[in-house]
Write a protein that binds this DNA or RNA. Structure first.
Length: 945
RNA sequence: GCCGGAGUGGCGGAAUUGGUAUACGCGCACGACUCAAAAUCGUGUGUCGCAAGGCAUGAGGGUUCGAGUCCCUCCUCCGGCACCA
């Protein structure tokens, strides 16, 4: 009989649908497993071969869980509101509703030929009024709690999509959809207060079993930083400047203050600013520039001094100039900073450009935590002050460097400062003793660096206070040095460039940098020039100084509020009514859903109003409160609204009374496995977590986090290594592949390509390997001997090892290695005379999640009446998997010299004797004495000689 | 710049806990079957070497009886954030 994939696959897909074998179980006594795919956005292009990868993964996983006795929820649906569908509709001159229907139909067809186990009775669609009724309901709850509000702040406006956008919708300051540079536009908009949840969104990441990269992206996005707000008063004025800083310990080093161009304080100081014209010009320019201009302009710092006004440093009452500069953002912190050029790179650059002074108040503290000279815990730190001598040659442009002989230190001449000495005296003495040079002149001190490390020669933890100083030799006059000095180090003359590469200690590198004129240091350290706080370390000084100047400790986030309104047609109407008497009135819950009116013209207006505003019949309504004339809100929700809670609706998709039945929610939540692409790391996955936490707070759900385990499938690129896209012409259509090779082969191949979470290249040439395997399985069926009770012991053992391997591999999403295990078993079956029915059945069951059609066909052919997909997963028997004979590797001196076969669980002595007797081993042991024998049971024996 | 992930044959990749590096597959070579071809099956396939044996997991060092795996220094690639004070 020939293997006809077309016939077999069609037949079983029909049969499964007819018998509804993948219907979600409802017996709540059974354990549950909720396996979820990120639902697709049905575009006009249809699916390419890259799309199903994640779906195949969840299909295998959910089939495996079902066979293991779980109630499995594995649903599918459509995310269909938003710009892509609307733009497609405008371009193709069809109504978005029609286009979406058509696209969904196409997607569903493409998915169905792959034989997935979705429970289609639970299909949802975000554009269905019965669905978005509850999206609107959630909005009303947010409104009730004050987490949704109207705002007039300037927002990001995409001139091409003609709508406002959220921060998350930008990529490098451009619209993520169309790559247009966005503008700042002041307009009325709805905003969700996601920042109220910033802290919880951040903290709860720690307990999620998610890819580290996604968690890290979210941490970056939320961008928590702890710091302080400090007040600088303005000389001869009432106003104060509030600045936010994470480094209050550097307050004494502030040499100027900068206001963001957006800071309203500037306007109020107007009459005191003689150069107002210049200032105003700068402000206008900054306002006109987009964010991308502000950061792109070669990053050169620009700004203008507010002449005539001065800020007072609250720490020491010093008068500081005030600047306006666009490197300070109006939308973060307080829109004002204290500038500490010695300890902040941006301030350093600005001070450099504007010739502002620099004041060092932090002396670096280097603590070695790794390597041979890492501070050893438990040992006391021994403090010592030392002079570090940078010595210049008497005639050449070279510096004297020192290389320690007993440890790997490369640095300068260093020595302790003895009592009564100043650094000049100490340095001169050290240079004479250590190098023999006699005529040394002290020029100047350079910097101080504190350093904690383990001194490997002296065997102590050292806390060194390195005071660097600059010396120059007057001539080359030199005396012989003492022998113990020569044993300790060599000295060499190096050019400045050579010194740079020579130094291998961070503390010495910092000293050299300072000597070369780079006084910027951004790390923590020990305070200097800071009045009473000098000598304290940064960490404690942060609190002490904040307290001393009556500052406030605060936490700030990069995360911005979620701009939630779009001036477009194709979205959920925001369910509020604007009444001239009552203001903003929520639509009563009983009136939901507020349905999107059917219109002829849905193109964006570009005026900042949604196209809905033109539909007077829809807009005009009565106020639910005063019953007077009122108007509907015409903005719609962003694309991300519907997807922020869809995973809940699958649990109870037809509930008319509530978003979800609490009993069902309790049983099915959370999602056990969630699979999708990395592109959703900071949008969908933050929004959904935010809404979920909100729903938790209003007791609509019982879990704090929606998705327990997250897996990102890697992208399948085109054969050319580029992302598949129609415009590049490298799209491979899955329908064609399935027609030629069959869905089973296609599924198997996509899983065999490589690790699930890694990207791969599609190659239609390589798929033959998977096809050959499937055909091999087909042929193997003919070798089944129903009378045979068992196969030979090694094959029996392999069958059971494979049960374990495939099970473990599916559990950890290592689908490629499971396929490899099945191939190995298939190859062994092929070598055997015949195969017992039991073992071939096990093989089919293990393969069933990957290749559901062929395994079903052969399973029935073996005489089984029930679908293979409803059978119990094969049970692994460790006893059957155990080999009676094992191969033990024999090593001599750590090198593999052969192997022996021994009874499993043999004693070390038996194995050692047998190994030594083997001829190919014996020759390596001849004339050697075995010092030690290392035996790893059933694996390896190593004779150390 | 900061953070995260990775680097293994001609190619995709395996090695789950420190224990035979290169499983499985593709490709390639040779052979069987065939009038022939395709398909299928078999054998071989890291590298140097006739061989014995040596050398190989981005580079260099270290720990260990033993390192792709652990530690240190560095290089390259991919991803996230980036004037966020």
């Amino acid at each position: 009989m020939k293997y006809d994939h077309v016939k077999i696959e069609k037949k079983w897909q029909k049969e499964w649908a007819k018998n509804n074998i993948y219907k979600t179980g409802s017996n709540q006594k059974k354990p549950k497993h909720y396996v979820l795919d990120m639902f697709p956005y049905p575009s006009g292009q249809g699916l390419h071969v890259g799309h199903p990868k994640g779906y195949i993964g969840t299909d295998i996983y959910s089939r495996y869980k079902r066979m293991n006795g779980f109630n499995v929820l594995h649903p599918m649906g459509w995310d269909a509101f938003g710009l892509p569908a609307e733009n497609y509709a405008i371009k193709n001159k069809v109504h978005p509703e029609v286009a979406v229907k058509k696209n969904i139909k196409r997607y569903k067809e493409q998915l169905s030929i792959l034989g997935f186990d979705y429970d289609w009775e639970r299909e949802i669609n975000t554009t269905d009024p019965e669905y978005y009724r509850w999206t609107q309901w959630i909005f009303l709850q947010l409104l009730k709690k004050g987490l949704a509000y109207e705002s007039y702040e300037p927002i990001n406006w995409c001139p091409s999509c003609q709508t406002g956008l959220a921060n998350e919708d930008l990529e490098d300051g451009k619209c993520e959809r169309c790559k247009s540079v966005v503008e700042k536009k002041p307009m009325r908009q709805w905003v969700l207060k996601i920042t109220d949840y910033a802290d919880r969104l951040l903290k709860d990441l720690d307990n999620l079993d998610w890819p580290e990269s996604v968690k890290e992206s979210q941490r970056n996005w939320i961008g928590r930083s702890e710091g302080a707000e400090l007040e600088f008063s303005i000389k001869d004025r009432e106003e104060k400047i509030r600045v936010f800083t994470t480094r209050p310990d550097t307050l004494f080093g502030a040499t100027y203050v900068v206001l963001a161009p957006e800071n309203p304080l500037i306007e109020s100081l107007k009459e005191d600013i003689p150069n107002w014209k210049e200032v105003k010009k700068y402000l206008d320019k900054a306002k006109a520039a987009s964010d991308i201009d502000r950061s792109a302009e070669g990053r050169e710092k620009t700004g203008v001094c507010l002449e005539g006004v001065a800020a007072i440093n609250p720490a020491n009452q010093e008068e500081l100039p005030i600047y306006v500069a666009d490197y300070v953002l109006g939308s973060y912190g307080t829109g004002a900073v204290m500038a500490v050029p010695a300890h902040d790179e941006r301030d350093y650059e600005f001070a450099d450009a504007f010739d502002l002074p620099l004041k060092t108040v932090i002396q670096p503290l280097i603590v070695k935590t790794a390597g041979d000279d890492a501070v050893q815990p438990g040992k006391a730190l021994e403090e010592r002050s030392a002079v570090v001598c940078i010595v210049k040659h008497w005639s050449e442009d070279k510096y004297l460097c020192s290389r320690w002989k007993k440890n790997d230190w490369k640095g300068f001449v260093i020595g302790g400062i003895e009592q009564g000495e100043d650094i000049g005296q100490a340095g001169i003495r050290e240079i004479q003793e250590e190098t023999g040079y006699q005529d040394v002149g002290f020029l100047t001190g350079v910097t101080t660096v504190h350093s904690q490390f383990y001194h490997a020669v002296k065997k102590v933890n050292r806390f060194a206070h390195f005071q660097a100083a600059f010396f120059q030799l007057k001539n080359g006059k030199r005396k012989e040095t003492a022998e113990e000095e020569r044993e300790l180090h060599d000295v060499v003359w190096l050019t400045a460039e050579e010194v740079e590469n020579f130094l291998n200690r961070e503390d010495m590198k910092l000293i050299w940098q300072a000597f070369r004129g780079n006084l910027l240091y951004e790390g923590n350290g020990i305070l200097a020039n800071s009045g009473a706080f000098s000598g304290q370390d940064s960490e404690s000084a942060k609190q002490a100084i904040t307290k001393a100047v009556s500052g406030k400790r605060v936490t700030k986030y990069k995360l911005r509020e979620w701009v939630f309104s779009r001036q477009r047609y194709w979205g959920e109407p925001i369910p509020v009514i604007h009444c001239p008497h009552c203001g903003v009135v929520p639509v009563p819950e009983k009136d939901l859903p507020v349905t999107l009116p059917k219109v002829k013209s849905y193109a964006p207006t570009g005026t900042g109003e949604s196209p809905l505003a033109a539909i007077k019949k829809w807009v005009n309504t009565t106020c639910p409160t005063c019953k007077g004339k009122a108007e509907r809100e015409t903005n719609t929700m962003p694309q991300w609204a519907g997807s922020s809670w869809y995973y809940l609706r699958y649990i109870d998709p037809k509930n008319k009374k509530a978003l979800i039945d609490p009993k069902k929610e309790k049983y099915w939540q959370p999602v056990d496995v969630y699979v999708g692409g990395t592109e959703h790391a900071t949008r969908h996955l933050i929004y959904a977590r935010f809404w979920h936490k909100f729903l938790y707070d209003i007791k609509a759900v019982g879990t704090k986090e929606p998705f327990k385990l997250l897996k990102n499938q890697g992208l399948i690129s085109g054969p050319d290594g580029r992302k598949m896209s129609k415009s590049l012409g490298n799209v491979v259509n899955p329908d064609d592949i399935v027609e030629r090779f069959g869905a089973d082969t296609f599924r198997l191949y996509e899983m065999f390509l490589g690790p699930f979470e890694q990207g791969n290249l599609w190659s239609t040439d390589n798929i033959v390997g998977s096809r050959r395997f499937i055909e091999k399985v087909w042929r193997l069926a003919e070798k089944v001997d129903s009378k045979k009770k068992a196969d030979e012991p090694e094959l029996e053992a392999l069958v059971h090892k494979t049960i374990k391997k495939v099970s473990d591999d599916i559990e950890r999403f290592s689908f490629n290695t499971a396929v490899s295990g099945l191939m190995i078993l298939g190859n062994e079956f092929e070598k055997a005379e015949s195969i017992s029915r039991v073992n071939f059945g096990i093989f089919l069951q293990l393969l069933a999640p990957y290749a559901p059609h062929i395994t079903e066909e052969l399973w029935r052919w073996l005489g089984n009446k029930k679908s293979i997909h409803l059978e119990a997963w094969p049970r692994y028997s460790p006893a059957k998997a155990a080999d009676s004979l094992v191969t033990v590797i024999v090593q001599v001196g750590g090198k593999v010299r052969g192997s022996i076969r021994v009874n499993s669980d043999s004693e070390e002595e038996t194995v050692a004797r047998k190994a030594q007797e083997a001829p190919e081993i014996g020759k390596w042991l001849e004339g050697q004495t075995v010092k030690k024998t290392v035996y790893v049971k059933n694996r390896l024996i190593n004779f150390v000689v």
